[in-house]
Amino acid sequence: MLKHLKTFCPTDVSFQDLDKSFVERFKEYLDKDAMARAGKKLSQNSKYSYYGKFCAALKQAVKDGILKVNPANGVDYFKQGEPQREFLTLDELQKAVNTECELPLLKNAFIFSALTGLRWSDIEKLLWSEIQHSKEMGYYIRFRQKKTKGAETLPISEQARELLGEAGKPEVKVFEGLHYSAWSNLKLQQWMLKAGITKNITFHCARHTYATLQLTLGTDIYTVSKLLGHKELRTTQIYAKVIDDKKKEAANRIQLDL
Rank of each mutant, 00 (worst) to 15 (best):
G65E: 11
A167N: 10
G229Q: 05
V23P: 03
A151Y: 05
A72P: 12
G39E: 10
Q189G: 07
A240M: 11
F112V: 08
V97F: 07
E86Q: 11
M35S: 13
K241L: 05
L258A: 09
A240E: 11
K149G: 03
M35H: 07
Q189Y: 03
G177Y: 07
I238Y: 13
N70S: 14
E130D: 10
E24V: 06
F8W: 02
D64T: 03
K173Y: 07
G39L: 06
E100P: 05
E92V: 04
E249D: 15
L164Q: 11
K3R: 11
S14N: 14
S157R: 10
I254H: 15
E100F: 05
D19A: 02
T223F: 00
A36T: 02
L126Y: 00
K246Q: 15
K187H: 09
F15G: 10
D257L: 08
K187Q: 14
Q44I: 05
A195D: 13
K32T: 15
A240D: 12
I131D: 15
L126Q: 01
L67V: 07
K79L: 09
S157Q: 10
G81R: 11
L93D: 02
T198V: 08
I243M: 01
Q145R: 06
K199D: 11
K173M: 08
L178K: 10
A211M: 11
W120C: 09
G117K: 08
L228H: 08
V23Y: 03
D33I: 02
A250C: 09
C101V: 03
D257N: 11
A151N: 12
E100Y: 04
Y239G: 03
D244P: 06
W183K: 14
T89V: 05
L228I: 04
L88I: 05
L163M: 07
E86D: 15
G138A: 00
L118K: 08
Q214E: 13
K173T: 08
I111N: 02
R142G: 09
I197F: 01
G196P: 13
E166M: 05
D122L: 08
D122M: 08
P83E: 06
L186K: 15
D244T: 10
I123Q: 00
G196L: 06
Y51L: 09
Q189L: 07
W191P: 13
F203Y: 11
A114G: 11
F54K: 00
G150V: 06
L115Y: 12
Q237R: 05
T219N: 13
E162H: 07
L115F: 07
A240V: 02
Q80P: 04
